[in-house]
Amino acid sequence: MSNIRDLGNKINSLQNMQKVMRAMNMIASIKLRKLFSVQSSLALFDRSIEETRMDVFNAMQDSEHPLIKGHRYIEKIHIVMFTADKGLCGSHNSSVQKAVTRIVDESLEKGVQTEFSCIGNKGAHYCSRKDYEIFQQAEINERVLNREELEKISQSIFSRFMNNEIQKIFAVGNIYHTTLFQETTTLQLLPFFQTEEEETRGHQPLETEPSGEQFVISSAAAYLRFKLHSMLLNSYLSEHSSRMTAMENATNNSEDLVNRYITMQNHARQASITNELIEIVSGKEAMKG
């Protein structure tokens, strides 16, 4: 009987967990649905940002400014790390952490130091455990999503680059493609650069106002700010998409486990009934004898 009771307790516990997982799935899907209108224009927004970067680089590629040519010596790089505030979202956080660890290891081999801006508590906790240098951190709340806090973060990072305290800026986070597919991406934000594919394309002359150094500085500051906001929205979409998928998978797995425990409980109950019948029959036969 104790075995039957234990199985019953396990079934009740799993069914209670299923209620929580279904609720988390529903909350994630609601948050994801609210951002679908943003997601539809996010790809176009990203494309426009990258086209602007290419135009600026092409217009000023003969300039010796650090934003175009880069700093002469690379001593420290800055990594903006986008994770979630909470777990239970599949590999959303761990994939970013692995990508960051690779960058740090490669930098250490070259004698280059790293520092972090952590957007999301999970990234900050990971950097603390690994004893990485954290320059600043922020939770993903309404102020960050509405760019108020993110603009301050962007400005402080840009100032450090201009003062040659850091020589490169990277962003690491998940890019949302579909509900079932998110891609962990590492992007160099500053200094400006050209990919091999972009080098093969032709470009038209660009007239700028204001001209020269001021144009490069204002363009780079705007590019950094907009790109960080784009990465944040992608990360936020990926988080809730991953959580929705993870909770759905967990619910299905727990349902399979519940069915298995119910089968085991039925077998145990049937065995108990059979044993009781055998005892009754045996007792009756003994009384006859």
Score class of each variant (00 low, 15 high):
residue 125 H to T: 13
residue 193 F to A: 10
residue 262 I to H: 07
residue 209 E to M: 07
residue 35 L to A: 14
residue 95 S to W: 09
residue 227 K to G: 04
residue 223 Y to E: 04
residue 62 D to Y: 11
residue 70 G to R: 01
residue 204 Q to P: 00
residue 101 T to C: 10
residue 95 S to H: 04
residue 193 F to P: 08
residue 152 K to H: 14
residue 149 E to N: 05
residue 32 L to M: 14
residue 50 E to C: 08
residue 178 T to F: 04
residue 276 E to N: 05
residue 62 D to N: 12
residue 207 E to C: 15
residue 37 S to G: 12
residue 22 R to T: 14
residue 126 Y to H: 09
residue 53 R to Y: 04
residue 264 M to G: 03
residue 205 P to W: 02
residue 52 T to L: 11
residue 186 T to N: 05
residue 75 E to G: 12
residue 271 A to G: 06
residue 189 L to I: 13
residue 256 D to P: 07
residue 162 M to K: 14
residue 123 G to W: 00
residue 199 E to R: 15
residue 237 L to E: 00
residue 37 S to D: 14
residue 201 R to Q: 14
residue 62 D to E: 09
residue 222 A to N: 11
residue 172 V to M: 03
residue 133 E to V: 14
residue 30 I to P: 05
residue 183 E to N: 07
residue 159 S to P: 02
residue 45 F to E: 01
residue 93 N to L: 01
residue 103 I to R: 04
residue 280 I to D: 08
residue 37 S to Y: 13
residue 25 N to K: 10
residue 281 V to G: 06
residue 64 E to F: 03
residue 201 R to H: 14
residue 182 Q to F: 10
residue 171 A to F: 08
residue 62 D to P: 12
residue 209 E to L: 11
residue 212 G to L: 05
residue 170 F to I: 06
residue 188 Q to C: 10
residue 5 R to N: 11
residue 161 F to P: 04
residue 75 E to C: 14
residue 27 I to G: 01
residue 232 L to Q: 00
residue 93 N to Y: 09
residue 89 C to N: 09
residue 30 I to C: 06
residue 112 V to R: 06
residue 171 A to G: 11
residue 216 V to D: 01
residue 109 E to C: 08
residue 29 S to H: 10
residue 133 E to C: 12
residue 71 H to T: 00
residue 3 N to V: 13
residue 96 V to L: 01
residue 58 N to D: 01
residue 161 F to K: 03
residue 200 T to G: 13
residue 157 I to S: 09
residue 137 Q to K: 15
residue 22 R to D: 13
residue 283 G to F: 06
residue 74 I to S: 02
residue 94 S to L: 10
residue 114 T to I: 03
residue 240 H to L: 05
residue 177 H to K: 15
residue 161 F to S: 06
residue 200 T to W: 12
residue 247 M to S: 11
residue 278 I to G: 01
residue 19 K to L: 12
residue 121 N to K: 15
residue 175 I to C: 06
residue 84 A to S: 07
residue 236 Y to W: 07
residue 281 V to R: 07
residue 196 E to S: 13
residue 288 K to V: 15
residue 221 A to H: 09
residue 114 T to S: 09
residue 129 R to N: 13
residue 182 Q to P: 10
residue 237 L to P: 02
residue 245 T to W: 09
residue 249 N to R: 13
residue 239 E to C: 05
residue 212 G to C: 04
residue 73 Y to G: 05
residue 145 L to R: 14
residue 29 S to K: 07
residue 24 M to L: 11
residue 79 I to D: 01
residue 192 F to A: 10
residue 49 I to Y: 07
residue 213 E to C: 12
residue 251 T to L: 12
residue 21 M to G: 02
residue 63 S to H: 05
residue 50 E to Q: 03
residue 41 S to C: 14
residue 206 L to C: 07
residue 98 K to R: 15
residue 112 V to S: 04
residue 241 S to E: 00
residue 32 L to E: 08
residue 213 E to L: 07
residue 204 Q to F: 08
residue 130 K to T: 05
residue 133 E to G: 02
residue 236 Y to R: 05
residue 22 R to I: 14
residue 264 M to R: 13
residue 80 V to T: 09
residue 112 V to I: 15
residue 103 I to M: 13
residue 33 R to S: 12
residue 287 M to E: 15
residue 31 K to A: 05
residue 235 S to F: 04
residue 84 A to C: 02
residue 67 L to D: 00
residue 243 R to Y: 05
residue 44 L to I: 11
residue 97 Q to I: 09
residue 2 S to N: 02
residue 152 K to N: 09
residue 158 F to T: 03
residue 218 S to C: 07
residue 14 L to S: 01
residue 256 D to I: 13
residue 211 S to L: 10
